[in-house]
Design a protein around this nucleic acid. Sequence first.
DNA 1: CATTTTTCTGCAAATTCTTGCAAGATAATT
DNA 2: AATTATCTTGCAAGAATTTGCAGAAAAATG
Lengths: 247, 247
Amino acid sequence: MLKTERQAYILRQIDLHNRILSSDLSTEINVSEDTIRRDLNELADMDKIIKVHGGALSKSFHSSFLKSDVYQADSKRLIAQKVVPLIRNNMFILTTGGTTIIEMARILPPDLNATFFTGSIPAAHEYAQHPNIEVIFLGDKISKSSQIAVGGEAISKISGIKADLCIMGINAIDETGITDNDWEVIQVKRAMIQAAEKTIVLSIAEKVNTHQKLMICGLDEVDTMITELDPSHNLFESYKKHGITIL
Amino acid sequence: MLKTERQAYILRQIDLHNRILSSDLSTEINVSEDTIRRDLNELADMDKIIKVHGGALSKSFHSSFLKSDVYQADSKRLIAQKVVPLIRNNMFILTTGGTTIIEMARILPPDLNATFFTGSIPAAHEYAQHPNIEVIFLGDKISKSSQIAVGGEAISKISGIKADLCIMGINAIDETGITDNDWEVIQVKRAMIQAAEKTIVLSIAEKVNTHQKLMICGLDEVDTMITELDPSHNLFESYKKHGITIL
DNA sequence: CATTTTTCTGCAAATTCTTGCAAGATAATT
DNA sequence: AATTATCTTGCAAGAATTTGCAGAAAAATG
């Protein structure tokens, strides 16, 4: 990794999280802490960040008191961390939008080389930041309620894809399957599951064993489910029986 | 392999991967690293790439790296204010991306009822916030350097549109016409101008009477030009002679 | 105030860069 | 066609950069 690249990555991480630890960056990028510290000092000299003992802060730190108002952000970050290892180089990956997916997009390792398909503007935006990821946007008409592309164009584009993974944030899952409450979104999600070899669903535990009005698919279409809880939690018994891997 | 050929190859690789190592190129093309380095330096002198220790980066990479705050934000806000009145209800409008366009998107009156087409993720995102605007995203493959959709898919989608207005942020304009420096972006912008009845170009005054390498169109294709200056400024004399309305 | 963590300093190894130079290729000129 | 000038490329040696490491200094923590 080139020095400039590394510093750009650091800057981006600081923009994203408002603060970072030298030690975290060190293990993340796989360079010594000295190097990170020198980078941070250089960036601080350039007035791009604020260097503090043990790490650095975003210059607009004051605004970070407003914090992001993402519900259960910590859980979602945890889920995101569990997904990342499943993504390998050269994969074709279909994803939905949703805050958990965004969180995932942000922590994808910088050297990952993959193609991401999505109909979500925020997700596409995040993927596009990444140095080695190819982004394909699916569809044309954008639904305001869900901030994703919907309609026949999106569906037909998705159908034309043979993806390795479908990574999907969901709203409700129970023994009968995955459900949602937006007709247009349902269509898109169904098409995505069809188009991918494996389907990974992401959900905070709170949504497990709940259901909504519209069915997306049965449990047999799901390969892996990821929540913030430990996989051994007894909440997942019935899902395991359906052959779903819990992470 | 000829020098020019080699440099074209290098440029293409950088466009493709956003970054390259001198050593990789050396083994790839089978010339000494010195030669690669000299090539990179030449390309950097021509402002086509960013040379860094150990290799080079795409120019766009650097701009997103510097990002911080918007250059001449005040001017751009002023320009945005001048555009808004030109947009009427029920219009079909093609727009590019760019910070000026984003600024415009933010101040669109809430009761405006129109359909916006764009290939820019940030622009689409802004439009999607608006209560009464319909957003159509153009294209699928997203170029990291420009953050817009590029390629045949985008072009053909644009060609299928008959829009009332094309509102375009530009990089350079002089007596010969509008120019830019990114081949893929050129294609998209050209298609947009073709597909729209009227073309409005937005530019900060600093860019007026400058030019870049690649031609988008002549002045006769432009209907209106908007800058932050007063329309009576003598900078615009020659443009007025070409029948362009200055605002 | 003792312990742990982080930072600073100097140093060494590896890599990359610069520079001058020479040989070959290409272009220009007579 | 011959000669001269210019360009291109590879090589080598010294300079500069980058990075990791070790030990001392400084800061944070309880």
